[in-house]
Design a protein around this nucleic acid. Structure first.
Lengths: 226, 226
DNA sequence: CAATTGGTTATAAATTTTTTATGAATTATA
DNA sequence: TATAATTCATAAAAAATTTATAACCAATTG
């Protein structure tokens, strides 16, 4: 499952919060839907079957708690993770919230990074499904679960960075991944590495997987070809 | 959109910070404007419509927070990304800033490389616009994602400049692109190249794609014909 | 501490890009 | 029309950029 296919339902009565949280999650690549109160949330949840619901506790019409209980009773949403937005210190709501079936809390005021990493953590189990997917390309199989590569009959164990790089390039054979793109995906955009780091990893992959599978597009990046 | 067309508004009351950050971003190729307080920032933002505003939180006359709120209320700047400069550990500012409509934070002390990569990340969504599309013209297909050309059944890999030139001309078949226009688009306004550079690239394209596809309009420029 | 991994650096190699020089084509002009 | 002046085409050389690779170092792991 790609990030884009992960839908998050965001419920809050303050448009400002909706906007900024939605922005941050959308930027991360998730699909985000919004609702402004509990009733609307239940409706939307039924429709879009989100993987995650982020919901304010206090809302007009129907508060988060009540909505949560309702949603928990909908069988097709049993897999959905529900997390509450709550003002820091509102301990009582947490207790009550857990009884209502919430999985986690995010405290206000919201910090973008905390929010995003929390969401990622909560969605990990959904991503795992995707990660378990084996990528098969000709005689090459990338098995994420066991972190190994099958090259024909031969089994290869790659170090993490090499594995990730291969997995990235192989996730879209033919596509040229720009250096910047590779760095963002595998190193993260805060990590600074020298200009030759990618080359070195590519070389190692070429040694192990085969020289001809990795094409250099000079001035642009690299691509994996089948 | 080329980097040069991306304008960043930098707001800080310390001239040292302005200078060093401006230097780093200018070196990267961005156009950088500066302001020294919130009031000036709002003025300038209206004028130059920057894609990104990097603003100190604490400033005289009007602090970053207030300026941020103001800017967020200007419709034509709704797409502008705002990020704060904040001393590490100033958590309180993050909370408040988030509510004021900030998108991200950069913590002081500023590390140039981190700054630059962060800026790149923030601007990514603007750049993404023009990136992913195939141009099809008769038996010629320009595939930007894979950085390759299909000429009938034949696959061609062009060097970057040639690829960009072809993509530019082919983006409007029939239109005559003036030399100046080509230079602006592919080399950028401030890169100075000799008078024969374009010709040479055209010749290479003619060799690879076909002599008759590129028409010379003497005294004006070149056009691509189908 | 030995082995592995992730990363850097220096240098070589490859390729791309630009310039240069010369001739051809076109346009302007006497 | 002949001549001069522009402008472009082309091949080849030169310069600049970008990548490949080996060797090395630091951090981590067991």
């Amino acid at each position: 499952m790609k990030k884009k296919d992960i839908t998050i339902l965001l419920v809050d009565d303050e448009p400002d919060i909706l906007e900024i949280v939605k922005y941050n999650l959308t930027t991360e690549g998730y699909t985000v839907e919004t609702a402004e109160n509990g009733l609307e949330a239940i409706d939307k949840a039924k429709q879009i079957k989100p993987q995650l619901i982020i919901m304010d506790v206090m809302m007009p019409k129907m508060d988060g708690m009540e909505a949560c209980e309702n949603i928990r009773n909908i069988p097709e949403l049993s897999e959905t993770v529900i997390t509450f937005l709550t003002a820091r210190g509102e301990d009582y709501s947490q207790m009550a919230g857990f009884e209502a079936g919430a999985d986690d809390y995010i405290t206000k005021p919201i910090k973008p990074k905390v929010l995003v990493s929390k969401v990622k953590a909560l969605l990990r189990r959904f991503k795992k499904e995707a990660e378990n997917d084996k990528i098969k390309l000709g005689n090459l199989t990338i098995n994420r679960e066991e972190y190994k590569i099958m090259l024909g009959k031969k089994e290869l164990i790659l170090p993490r960075k090499e594995f990730e790089l291969l997995a990235l390039l192989a996730s879209k054979p033919g596509k040229v991944f720009k250096r910047e793109e590779i760095l963002d995906n595998i190193w993260g955009n805060d990590v600074i590495v020298g200009g030759r780091t990618i080359d070195v990893h590519i070389r190692k992959l070429r040694e192990k997987i085969g020289d001809d599978r990795f094409k250099t597009v000079k001035g642009v990046g690299y691509k994996f070809v089948v």
